[in-house]
Computed example of a mutant assay.
Amino acid sequence: MEAILYVSHGSRVPAARREAARFVEQCKAAIDIPIQELCFVELAEPDIATGVDRCAAQGATRVIVIPLLLLSAGHAKQDIPAALKAAKQRHPSLEIVCGAPFGVHDAMIDIIIDRIGEQPAPLDHESMVLLIGRGSSDPDTKRDIAAIARRLQEKTSVPHVDVCFLAAIRPTLDEGFKRAQASIYRRVFIVPYLLFTGVLMKTVERKLQAMPVSDQQWHLCSYLGYHPRLVTLIQQQVQALSAAKKGA
């Protein structure tokens, strides 16, 4: 019997955990697999080990692990595989297969465009976008955010998309804001490339509130959130991993 184990990043902020739980309920309704559980990499319970245990206790013989992560960095490359390896030692007869983070995908660009479209101002030739990533010491993070920025610019024809990061790598959030302030663009659309609310989103909000008054218009878009487009990506990933088993 197959099971799905959704692995969210985790947060100390209760609202973030509730957002993940609500999203998993949407996935459960869209995917016809009897066992579906949610767990977290860190900062919340249940952890990955407990998530696997819960799947096994319900009779799962094969667990499809779906990382609810935006990009492939330390959690996807190290933490999740290590936790799954330990779980496999406790459940040697259980088959565990792991999917990939959402990554650089056209659906992610469409979500950004949706969030920008929620703002009252137009994204036009007088506009720029400041794309804010979480940040990681993994070099793939900077590469992937740069690729997303290029695709966003191509898809919207906005004159300029700049990037900055909240941690670990440059340009920093302060540097990103300073470059936007010094730019020629009348409107700056700030897009936090984050999956859920929490401390990092509050950091962006505080930074914007501290900005000096100027003729520039600054528009803070919502973080990406557990957008309905992500359900489709997960459906496709589950179908591919299930088909791989059937074709083996």
Score class of each variant (00 low, 15 high):
Glu2Thr: 05
Val231Asn: 04
Cys221Tyr: 05
Tyr226Ile: 00
Ile184Asp: 05
Arg17Ala: 13
Gly103Val: 06
Arg22Ala: 15
His91Asp: 02
Leu208Asn: 00
Ser222Tyr: 11
Arg229Asp: 02
Ser183Asp: 00
Ser214Gln: 08
Val204Tyr: 01
Val24Asp: 06
Arg12Cys: 01
Thr172Ile: 06
Ile184Arg: 15
Tyr226Asn: 01
Pro228Gln: 08
His91Gln: 08
Leu43Asn: 07
Ile35Phe: 13
Leu200Ala: 07
Glu19Asn: 01
Val104Glu: 11
Ala76Tyr: 03
Val41Tyr: 10
Leu208Trp: 00
Ile4Trp: 01
Leu194Ser: 06
Pro159Phe: 01
Leu152His: 08
Ala83Asn: 13
Gly225Tyr: 03
Arg150Gly: 02
Ala30Asn: 11
His91Tyr: 06
Arg186Pro: 00
Arg151Lys: 15
Val188Tyr: 01
Glu37Phe: 04
Pro228Met: 05
Ala3Val: 03
Arg187Cys: 06
Asp110Lys: 15
Pro139Ser: 14
Pro122Asn: 08
Leu68Glu: 02
Val7Gln: 12
Ala76Leu: 03
Leu230Met: 15
Glu42Pro: 02
Val199Arg: 11
Asp144Leu: 14
Ala182Val: 00
Ala29Asn: 11
Arg134Trp: 07
Gly103Ser: 12
Asp53Asn: 08
Val65Phe: 07
Asp47His: 13
Leu94Trp: 10
Gln216Ala: 04
Val104Cys: 14
Leu84Trp: 04
